[in-house]
Design a protein around this nucleic acid. Structure first.
Lengths: 339, 339
DNA sequence: CTGAAAGCGCTAACAG
DNA sequence: CTGTTAGCGCTTTCAG
């Protein structure tokens, strides 16, 4: 293994000078720098992170703790966004997937401590409140897709209310008035927030909002839910006063609405406009007609979480943090048309 | 920060004894061990990985290098499988996502070296041959979902030939004889392997194989492809001698076949059986009827890759490695029925 | 079974 | 602008 000393010896300078060069310390003459860098390259010297970490008591690694987010098609983009942001800083991601196991989670916090990670992004699969106790870890933490109930940590979450607003507003603007809504489980925070968005859009359009048109597309409980959108949609589309458009809680719901419409001989978007949520591209871009939907901005959430982390002091002063809301933009494709 | 010395002082033993205890060295009396562990817990001591790494010149971190695999709904399971396997060893994953950029990849190899990772799993999105040169990294490497053209590294890949065999064999057994096949791009290795599997199943069933029934569901080139399954399926289903079953190159293709069938008034599985590949659950379990498909065993590939890594010496002797094939099992759901 | 001494590769602190 | 000295926290080596 080639060390700093080896390079120093070759270059005929002191180890500290080599250290300065590889750390971009400006207090080195251009000549010295060039000479040293030439040797660094020639010997293919790579600084030992362990030694560096030990000396500086901090590392270039950022931890990512997730329940199942890192491993779910819905939200891997958080990882991509975080990586993208880290790349510029020469840092990297140590990932820990708890699968919801608290014992394992505790172990991973210790591991993060052992590795002296410079910060942790804590990401959850569902947008939800979270009271985080980390006796084993003292560094900065940013929440992604969740937020602390008592506002004691920075957090980045999707703006579900505005997302719901986008969905309803777009359909209302296309002239739809009878709009069915197939929601996620009522217990999920996103459902409540989006509901507020729907109401706001209807009010602005001067259209009365009929709560009877709002039906859950899932049964069961959170994390143990069953998708019943197909049956619900058939009921809704089979009745009198059939809606001309359906807003879905996510793209999977939309997929089943497509199936329900097909089974009733209804064409999309001819007889029925359908709007998704999430922008799961494997579904939204593959469906025929392709699905107009609202995008969950996971990539941006990952980026922002790391940015926020980078800007935080090592030991945060007691402070209050409002969740940062990231817009869920409307992605217009082929499944909605004017009426 | 509480260090080994702090614990030693408290426990009234030497630092080395504490080191022995936390490293499960058997050469410590039970009494001493218990006493030390009590202090370790009381002080919430966690050994510093940096110091440990520096001394032992090896770390408990395993690198995962991917093109886009870690970030794609298709194959995040490789990450989950790897984590699962690492968990038992008290190790963790440092992930690096190159997004196909060779400059970035080189940087990540140096980073892995700097972090002294004990090994690297190199995973690709497509099952393909790969000639890996890593001048910057000397440790053990296992390929996942790809394999070295000259067989100089261990690799774990899906058994696509047998997967194709499963697809065809199941439909033949259900009595189907006119079977359409909507393939991936011909240039992809999986396409060739599965083709061999189809032929084998047909031969075994004594049914003649009609190459004209095999049509790509994609246009363009690898990594820049366009899914045209909807149109291809409509052509195939609109002609005379319509197939009674369609084998798809992946679940997205199947999704478009569903749409094509619906547009022609054909019901699944009544008029047409459809078989997918990948077992992308967001699609396969959500479709109505749910999709019978063949599962890409990414989780197992991740597990096996780490297992293989763990069993490898630090510097592999020059040797020849045949790719380890992992079966792609048939997942029976509702979209195929006997004829 | 336990301990003392030395040093891994780097950078902080201080000189010059 | 450059060098010297010391030491981060741990484990290796060797001695009891």
């Amino acid at each position: 293994m080639v060390t700093l000393r080896d390079v120093a010896r070759q270059a005929g300078v002191s180890p500290k000078t080599v250290s300065r060069v590889v750390n971009d310390d400006p207090a080195v003459s251009a000549n010295t720098r060039d000479a040293v860098m030439a040797i660094v390259r020639a010997m293919n010297y790579v600084p030992d992170e362990a030694a560096r970490m030990m000396r500086t008591a901090t590392s270039t690694v950022v931890g990512l703790m997730t329940d199942v987010v890192a491993t779910t098609p819905y939200s891997v983009d958080i990882v991509r966004g975080a990586q993208q942001e880290l790349k510029g800083e020469g840092k990297t991601l140590l990932i820990a997937n708890t699968e919801g196991d608290p014992v394992l989670e505790r172990e991973y916090w210790r591991m993060f401590r052992a590795h002296k990670v410079s910060g942790v992004v804590y990401a959850t699969m569902y947008h939800r409140p979270l009271d985080l106790r980390t006796p084993d870890f003292q560094g900065p933490i940013v929440l992604a897709n969740c937020y602390s109930g008592n506002a004691d940590r920075p957090s980045i979450v999707p703006d579900d209310e505005r997302g719901g607003y986008h969905q309803a507003q777009h359909l209302l603007q296309l002239g739809h008035r009878r709009i069915g809504i197939l929601t996620l489980l009522p217990a999920i925070r996103a459902t409540v927030l989006r509901g507020a968005g729907y109401r706001k859009a209807f009010a602005e359009a001067g259209v009365s909002y009929d709560p009877a048109m709002e039906v859950p597309a899932f049964q069961g409980s959170v994390a143990n839910e069953r998708l019943v959108a197909y049956d619900v949609a058939r009921d809704m589309l089979g009745g009198r006063e059939r809606p001309t458009a359906i807003i879905c809680g996510n793209d999977k719901v939309a997929l089943q609405v497509y199936a329900a419409a097909a089974s009733l001989g209804l064409s999309i978007p001819g007889d029925l406009s359908v709007m998704g949520y999430d922008d799961l591209t494997v579904i939204a871009e593959t469906l025929r007609p392709s699905l107009t939907t609202v995008r969950l901005p996971y990539y941006e959430i990952g980026e922002l979480a790391v940015q926020t982390l980078t800007g935080m002091p090592d030991r945060a002063p007691a402070a209050t943090f409002e969740p940062v809301l990231v817009d869920c933009p409307l992605i217009t494709r082929e499944s909605c048309r004017p009426i």
